[in-house]
Design a protein around this nucleic acid. Structure first.
Lengths: 230, 230
DNA sequence: TTGGACTGTTACATTTCCGTCGCATAGGCT
DNA sequence: AGCCTATGCGACGGAAATGTAACAGTCCAA
């Protein structure tokens, strides 16, 4: 995985409008998006960004999506990356299938964005079964990303957006110690400037929220290093 | 519906003995039975056979029942098919419920065959109540897409077209949080340009409509994320 | 044509949350 | 103990997200 929670997706589509819409939706769904509008750039970006999944348009100038797919599936180091191919008409899917490019899934345009998201998640789950769309559990804490709900011993907890994201991050790797800088990256975003002490404050708020109905403090402070769950 | 009033059931169970027994009983009860022993085949058969109801074992090799269920409930064209999940122990039912896979009912092994039949019929009745329309229900809200009518505790509600579509979308996956962008996609259509704040306004109108005869607000606002039902 | 129903936008009110500061407290080292 | 640093935590101003009424435009039926 790119970083703790944010799966990286490489989006290859030559039509700017479609690419923009997709990128927007993917980002809204929590993906870190890298964009390319042609096959050559895509090949380079695969190595540079090491995406967790690739969404690839079939029709493209120069190097076509099919060709990109074929090349990637030939190299051992990129073979494992799931590829979802976009194609304009249903009949084409059969053709692409026939070409045995090795793509992992196909979506026909015009596609439902939600469906595409679902398929992307499904692929990610296959490759990395832990995260993305599954209910996270740690001791008596249960977190469902889909319904955006957190339970502790059957009681619903109320927590703010940042506390929620913070908890998601911690729960994705229970026991692992995250430095304040890492947490800023993962929860706030890579290019946001905020004081590292802000993390402390939010961890404090998260603690209070998690203990609002009683129970022990599940967050562990590692002096000089950061925070961890359990 | 299948031919001549015979409801089609897709039976997905990897244990041959159990599957055979169940299939026999289902056929005796007048169902047209299609069988699968794994999730992948099941996904294919859903499209090929268009069953009226699916009985799905939880534990299966490769693609689990949960995963099949989740995928089916994500696709609009299969979302309406009722799914009954079979699970080995009672505790698991709670777990599956927590996962919000969208299954319509749960039966614990070892189950009474009669009970399973009864539940299957109940689901069919719900989906096909002489009108052949899918009826969505959530708490005290009942929505019939066929007649375009919405009831709340036996009283008919009056709501506009957009409010109706919005409610349909939310009710198709109760509990799930939809972002404003997703709702724009699903309710308005993906190539319509409207401000995301418009969603807020319509959610507000939907709320007012749903509470026009009293009752609590069934729509949940998830700050920083979107809206959900329940 | 007129009136009603509906829609999308805007402006404003209100709530909730965020980031920072200051000080208290705890932990670790000599 | 005494000192220094890291962390906990309450408070506060302000920003951001959301609720909502009002408005103008559109469509359609009477």
């Amino acid at each position: 995985m790119g970083k703790g929670g944010q799966p990286r997706v490489l989006l290859v589509e030559d039509e700017p409008a479609q690419r923009t819409v997709l990128a927007y939706n993917l980002e809204a769904e929590g993906f870190a998006v890298t964009q390319a509008d042609n096959g050559e750039d895509a090949m380079v970006l695969v190595d540079e960004e090491e995406p967790d999944i690739i969404i690839l348009d079939w029709m493209m100038p120069k190097v076509s999506g099919i060709e990109v797919c074929r090349r990637l599936k030939m190299r051992p180091e990129t073979r494992g990356i799931p590829i979802i191919m976009l194609s304009a008409r249903a009949e084409e899917v059969d053709r692409i299938r026939g070409l045995e490019t090795g793509a992992d899934d196909y979506v026909v345009k015009p596609y439902s964005v939600l469906e595409l998201m679902a398929r992307a998640r499904a692929q990610l789950r296959r490759v990395r079964p832990s995260t993305a769309g599954v209910v996270l559990e740690h001791e008596d804490i249960r977190l469902d990303p889909e319904s955006h709900r957190v339970y502790r011993s059957e009681k619903v907890l109320k927590l703010g957006p940042t506390e929620f994201k913070l908890l998601v991050t911690l729960m994705e790797r229970p026991g692992r110690v995250f430095s304040r800088e890492q947490l800023l990256d993962l929860v706030w975003g890579r290019d946001i400037y905020v004081d590292t002490r802000t993390v402390d404050v939010h961890v404090g708020r998260l603690r209070k929220s998690l203990m609002q109905h009683g129970g022990a403090d599940p967050v562990r402070t590692v002096r000089g290093a950061g925070y961890a769950l359990g």
